[in-house]
């Protein structure tokens, strides 16, 4: 895709930061507010699509390396499975960190309360792991599908020039 005009690029530069921060906020507050790893990861991955549309593929592929996102996705999935398997002494996916003190271990008062971010045990850990996985996975899908469009555009005898100007 060709880069869009300078007005669009400036606005997208500003709002991409807000989108990234909002996605990370949804992931980190997954155990307190609606949302979680899947939703927040989708928001952060939307930022990649946003930058791809505004800045064009050449500039995006210069800094968005597929290897980085692949590592992100694998790390997230492995962290999720490990957090599930560490509670195997009781059952699979047992929340062994909740209420123990320490990392994510604060007890929560019963009833309505204002929310403690250092609570919920493995739930917040799994939210972050799933968030990493969804960020990596959806960004990889966007990047590779964009590369796939380029692949067929340069083929012999193909009049397809994509849907950009």
């Amino acid at each position: 895709m060709n880069p869009l005009s300078v007005v669009v690029r400036t606005i997208c530069d500003v709002f991409a930061w807000f989108m990234g921060i909002f996605g990370v906020y949804i992931i980190i507050h997954g155990h307190l507010t609606p949302g979680g790893g899947f939703q927040g990861g989708a928001v952060v991955a939307t930022m990649i699509a946003f930058l791809l549309v505004s800045h064009g593929g050449k500039k995006l592929l210069a800094f968005a390396r597929p290897g980085f996102y692949s590592a992100l996705e694998t790390t997230g999935l492995l962290l999720f499975i490990c957090a599930g398997f560490f509670g195997i002494t009781t059952t699979l996916f047992y929340n062994f960190l909740a209420g123990q003190g320490g990392l994510f271990g604060s007890a929560v008062p019963i009833g309505p309360n204002s929310g403690i971010i250092n609570s919920a045990g493995t739930i917040s850990l799994m939210n972050m792991a799933v968030g990493l996985e969804v960020i990596g996975g959806l960004s990889l899908i966007i990047i590779y599908m964009f590369k796939g469009i380029r692949l067929f555009e340069n083929a012999e005898g193909s009049g397809e020039t994509g849907h950009d100007r």
Partner: peptide, 16 residues
């Protein structure tokens, strides 16, 4: 809230 020390019951079901 008591067992898993989490406010969001939906997240408790989905992730725990």
């Amino acid at each position: 809230q008591q067992e898993r020390s989490v406010n969001n019951v939906v997240t408790a079901i989905v992730f725990d």
